[in-house]
């Protein structure tokens, strides 16, 4: 899922400093699961904003909503009937949701309430970790199900490098060496021949180097 975390409250307060009536909109997708932008966080942020503004003798009216997803037009459409009553939207969706909301409602400013960090997993309650960088050309079948792009600090395709020591990465002793993980996993799978295979230079045009990406499925397109 997409992992995010709440922005510092002072940053959000500065965005809405001149607003008197705003809409705080959460998303029931990824950001609910990582406790950054679901209904609970909408309530907490709204309450915090009201307290801060009340304290400054500058009260604000807030409507709280949480949409099923902010990355699909049909759910964004649900705000059509009331969005014009507000001066701004603070969206607690990921960067995609914030942008899609701004795209659909062009006459109202849409501000981000969270920082979008990475595509990752819930390691345990309250701990999330990066697993994928959406490079657009998956090689997990060659690397024991461990991504060298996301898990190696240098995104090496043929690792490890000289900075790997006792299974840890030179950038931080708490960061595991991605290529050590790959080696260990391939050994467990008795597939070490894959480790010896030289992975050719990657075509990064499927990643961000190819510019903004899109996928068109003619079989699904209306």
């Amino acid at each position: 899922m997409i992992i995010g975390e709440g922005k510092p409250i002072q940053e959000i307060l500065a965005m809405i400093a001149d607003k008197k009536k705003i809409l705080v909109v959460g998303c029931k997708g990824c950001v609910t699961v990582c406790s950054a932008g679901g209904q609970k966080e909408v309530e907490i942020l709204s309450s915090t904003i009201r307290l801060a503004r009340e304290k400054e003798d500058n009260p604000i009216e807030i409507r709280e909503e949480t949409l099923e997803r902010q990355c699909d037009p049909e759910y964004l459409e649900q705000m059509r009937s009331y969005i014009d009553d507000y001066e701004a939207v603070v969206s607690l969706a990921c960067g995609a949701g914030v942008q899609f909301t701004a795209e659909k409602y062009r006459r109202i400013p849409v501000y981000p309430g969270i920082n979008t960090n990475f595509i990752g997993v819930t390691v345990e309650q309250g701990v999330w970790s990066e697993r994928c960088q959406a490079c657009g050309s998956c090689i997990l079948h060659k690397t024991g199900g461990i991504c060298p792009i996301a898990r190696c600090s240098k995104s090496l395709l043929n690792g490890p490098c000289g900075g790997s020591s006792k299974g840890k990465c030179e950038i931080d002793p708490d960061v595991e060496c991605g290529w050590q993980l790959i080696y260990d996993r391939l050994r467990e799978l008795e597939s070490l021949e894959l480790f010896e295979e030289v992975v050719p230079i990657k075509d990064w045009s499927t990643g961000r180097d190819g510019g903004p990406r899109r996928i068109i499925r003619e079989d699904l397109k209306s």
Binding site: I9, T48, L51, A52, K55
Partner: peptide
């Protein structure tokens, strides 16, 4: 922490 962050 929330209270401190808004000066309460």
């Amino acid at each position: 922490k929330i209270l401190s962050s808004i000066g309460l």
